[in-house]
Design a protein around this nucleic acid. Structure first.
Lengths: 172, 172
DNA sequence: TTGGAATGTCAACAAAGCTGACATAAAATC
DNA sequence: GATTTTATGTCAGCTTTGTTGACATTCCAA
């Protein structure tokens, strides 16, 4: 199909190489979500509620940007408000998330994790960070730099901006 | 939480760095699936069937390893056979996939894409490869090497082996 | 030859996405 | 001040894609 690109002695964009990148993403993403999935499954056995990846994502980004609004969360997660609302409702009913009416704009709801919510978030992010840490260590710092460059180039532009905003906020 | 690791002037395993990696995976995976998703959505408008990511994955791996068995596909995809069966059934009804009873073991079904199936697969993998190619080009060959190293380290062990098998087969 | 393992199908259910319609309250605009 | 827009929430209903459980078929090995 497409011709290999060779420049400075590199030959790395054959369809086969790209195909391997695609499958790499597929398998790696599975590994990436496996540990939190397992923890949630265990928790669900005991409790009555059934939490899944959707709950994990919501909790993650509320932890990341405490006081964020529902609208902002919708944009980051890229789902409909009906879908997010169902998730947030159960999280609030269970006392993991609280919403506070906005100060300047009283239409907005600002979201926060409760103590229990923070505990769950820590539990989930712990294992996910551990896997990321192991992968980073195994691959080395140079590889990590490259990894992040490719990830960033693979995002949609708007998502890249939201990602950058989260990053800058954390760094600032 | 965890202390930064410094060695040879590197300082890259703070929780913040790991967190950014996690979010990078999340946003990048969204970009990674966005183009095929969009194509399928367009196709679904015209046709009666409704194909999604599950169909894409099945078609991808059948194209990748023609004649593969249902059992093998189950292991690669990591879903239940009932779930895969529904997807395969619609693909076969629509004449995109055919299954042939195994020669040595008549319990097995070997899967192949028809002409129409190959056409769909090309259409989907085309845009996905294009995004991958753009990301690789933007990041450069050194970054690509690192990217693949980290991905591989992030997979579950068994998945890493299946990934390697696909890779070797293609190279051989 | 018979019992267990492998493979695949049918039925029913759940999680989590979606659209559409509609309500409320607050902010912004004319 | 009246109107429009924005942010949020809710109800109803649908789809995709995962799950278990039950069951049929086929193969193989004791």
């Amino acid at each position: 199909m497409s011709e290999p690109i060779s420049g400075e002695g590199l030959l790395f964009l054959t369809d086969e190489q790209l195909q391997q990148g695609i499958e790499g993403m597929f398998f790696a993403y599975r590994g990436f979500t496996a540990d939190p999935d397992r923890i949630l499954e265990e928790l669900n056995r005991d409790r009555d509620q059934n939490y899944g990846r959707a709950h994990h994502r919501a909790v993650h980004f509320v932890a990341r940007a405490p006081g964020t609004t529902v609208k902002n969360l919708l944009e980051i997660l890229g789902v409909t408000k009906q879908s997010l609302n169902r998730v947030l409702r159960t999280l609030m009913e269970d006392g993991l998330v609280v919403s506070k009416v906005g100060g300047s704009d009283r239409r907005e709801r600002h979201l926060f994790l409760t103590e229990a919510g923070q505990a769950l978030e820590r539990q989930l992010s712990e294992v996910q960070r551990a896997r990321m840490r192991d992968a980073y260590r195994a691959a080395g710092p140079e590889a990590v730099r490259g990894f992040r460059q490719v990830l960033e180039a693979m995002m949609d532009k708007e998502m890249g901006r939201k990602y950058g905003a989260l990053r800058d906020k954390a760094e600032g």
